[in-house]
């Protein structure tokens, strides 16, 4: 079973929930898909090793074969190619690697070469959990390719937790896209609630069953709970706005390691999701 942890607003506690959840259940896999800023390992402290480079195939024009017809440039919706009187100019940073330019070239003048834009890494320690993360190189824009490549390492025979990027844009769609369930982490503040509703729209559109974790419970007001009750969205867990949890977080310590009882709560949440007994909202 693949469970994605998403939020809408950043900083609501996705990584806190993901890390504490995997440490509360035996035999889990954790995939840090927030590839622009992966931070799960701040709490795991694993030694990492490279698994593979993530590269995008970008066009290289064979000027001997090219007749400057311009079909490649006309086709490219990202404007990564320009057909000039002097030749075809390629802008590799804009290329999404679709390969369309090569398909439409009547002369077979478009070759491809890989351009590395990120890396997949793996924790050297495999027990009690297996940890993978993606890392997008600085200055690159295409997080989705790194996320997709990272998710190819999911072992479908075991439970996997996917820590998603914030927001509701392409990287989030790539991260939660093939999850069996989505946990939305939010806080009951105006900003948290606003972005939570956007995230709810996304998972409903994608037809992914979902439930909610309210983090920093006690902060703000009851608007998230009121909304969830009205929309029949299950509240899976509430994590209190607790100084001790905040202090452990600031020291990079997953709070389940220091606060007895919380492993059981996370494990119970996982069991409920796995068995379907939390009655996750599918498509209200």
């Amino acid at each position: 079973m693949k469970i994605a942890i998403a939020s809408g607003k950043g900083g609501t506690g996705k990584t806190t929930v993901a890390v504490n959840l995997v440490l509360s259940v035996e035999g889990m896999q954790l995939f840090d898909c927030d590839v622009e800023e992966p931070n799960c390992n701040l709490f795991l402290g694993q030694e990492l090793e490279k698994v593979e480079d993530v590269s995008c195939p970008v066009p290289v024009i064979d000027s001997d074969k090219c007749t400057l017809c311009g079909k490649c440039a006309t086709f490219c919706r990202y404007n990564a190619l320009a057909a000039l009187p002097t030749g075809i100019m390629v802008f590799p940073f804009l290329c999404h690697g679709c390969g369309g330019c090569g398909l439409v070239c009547p002369e077979g003048a478009v070759q491809e070469e890989p351009r590395v834009l990120g890396v997949v890494e793996k924790g050297k320690t495999t027990a009690p959990l297996e940890f993978y993360r993606g890392l997008l190189n600085i200055g690159e824009a295409m997080a989705t390719l790194v996320i997709r490549t990272l998710q190819e390492h999911i072992d479908a025979s075991r439970p996997a937790i996917i820590d998603s990027p914030p927001g509701v844009a392409c990287p989030v769609i790539a991260a939660v896209g093939n999850a069996d369930y989505c946990v939305l982490v939010t806080e009951s503040t105006p900003f948290g609630f606003h972005d939570f509703k956007l995230a709810v729209e996304v998972v409903k559109l994608m037809k992914i069953p979902f439930g909610v974790v309210i983090n920093r419970d006690g902060l703000g007001d009851s608007r998230v709970e009121d909304f969830c009750r009205a929309e029949k969205i299950p509240i899976l867990l509430k994590i209190p706005n607790d100084m001790r949890i905040a202090r452990l977080y600031s020291e990079g310590i997953p709070f389940v390691e220091e606060m007895p009882g919380w492993k059981e709560k996370f494990a119970a949440m996982f069991k409920a999701i796995e068995s379907g007994s939390e009655s996750g909202v599918m498509n209200a």
């Binding site: 990202y78 404007n79 990564a80 057909a83 009187p85 804009l94």
Partner: peptide, 13 residues
């Protein structure tokens, strides 16, 4: 994205 590229291509052609 890439508006400047497409515009410069047009002006060149």
């Amino acid at each position: 994205g890439g508006a400047g590229i497409r515009a410069a291509e047009a002006v060149a052609n």
